[in-house]
């Protein structure tokens, strides 16, 4: 029962996670614990498995082995190995809020309705309750003035801020960010990072895959470095960026303009 006890306190608890695509092992026995209120950044070169790891957390990718608990509840399969029925899976998934690289807003709905859609139709909130929440969240991400615009009229940075509000509206136990600024024009990156930084200051639990090293250093509580599906280094950001233990990370940071302390 020790596993259940530890996962109760953690927002996300990943144990012995492995995943292969055909013959390629993309995740190998990954262990990760994200405490409530903690910001964990996953770093690694492309193909290291970091996006796959993130996408396993809400079962967009199905791992081959291992277990994942979200706020104490197992996702995807039951402890006896039975696959979870779709409705139950959807319920656990709704405890996570995911922000994608490509925004993935629903273009036929305006900004407000993008944010209220899941709370009303998945969580069964009343329209009024959902709209109040959405208005507050859009305010938080600085998008309330665009509440009746459609996504096709927004810039990338604006879309991503709406997508963040949409994920927050699920009131998730953990926010998952999959390279949230990689598809943005350089001058739009800042506005999105500023929103995420505010969230971290407010104590949101977040797991983030990013290439923004200075940002990772500024907001993370824990930095995890993934290499060929293995976590080869994990540390607090100061230690990670100033005195990495492995040559691999040192080399990676050299190539990524290791940021000076903010």
């Amino acid at each position: 029962m020790s596993e259940a006890n530890t996962s109760e306190t953690a927002a996300v608890s990943i144990r012995h996670l492995s995943k292969s695509f055909d013959d390629v092992e993309v995740l190998r026995d990954v262990e990760l614990e994200v405490k409530t209120g903690e910001v964990v950044t996953i770093i690694g070169s492309s193909g290291s498995g970091k996006s796959t790891l993130l996408r396993c957390i809400n079962w967009l990718e199905k791992p081959d082995r291992g277990s994942i608990h979200i706020a104490g509840q197992r996702i995807g399969v039951h402890d006896d190995g039975r696959p979870m029925p779709v409705r139950e899976l959807a319920k656990v998934r709704a405890k996570t809020g995911m922000v994608f690289q490509g925004f993935n807003l629903w273009p036929h709905l305006n900004v407000l309705h993008n944010v209220t859609e899941a709370p009303i139709h998945v969580q069964g909130k009343s329209k009024r309750e959902a709209e109040e929440l959405a208005t507050a969240l859009l305010e938080k991400v600085g998008m309330s003035h665009k509440h009746d615009s459609y996504p096709n009229t927004l810039s990338g940075g604006q879309k991503q801020r709406v997508a963040i509000a949409r994920a927050l509206a699920m009131q998730p136990a953990v926010m998952l960010f999959d390279e949230p600024t990689s598809a943005l024009d350089p001058e739009l990156v800042g506005e999105v990072l500023a929103v995420i930084k505010d969230l971290s200051a407010e104590g949101y639990t977040m797991v983030m895959v990013t290439h923004e090293m200075a940002f990772a250093r500024a907001v993370s509580d824990q930095v995890v470095f993934l290499e060929k599906g293995l976590i080869i280094e994990r540390a607090d950001p100061e230690t990670f960026f100033t005195s990495p233990k492995t040559d691999r990370v040192r080399k990676f940071l050299e190539n990524h303009d290791n940021p000076s302390p903010a």
């Binding site: 959807a90 998934r93 807003l105």
Partner: peptide, 22 residues
């Protein structure tokens, strides 16, 4: 766009609702 389907899944949509709403 498959990304929209993923977004719907990530937000807890099940097949029927996803189909009719999105």
């Amino acid at each position: 766009p498959p990304g929209q389907i993923e977004a719907a899944k990530a937000h807890g949509f099940t097949k029927g609702k996803m189909f009719f709403r999105l």
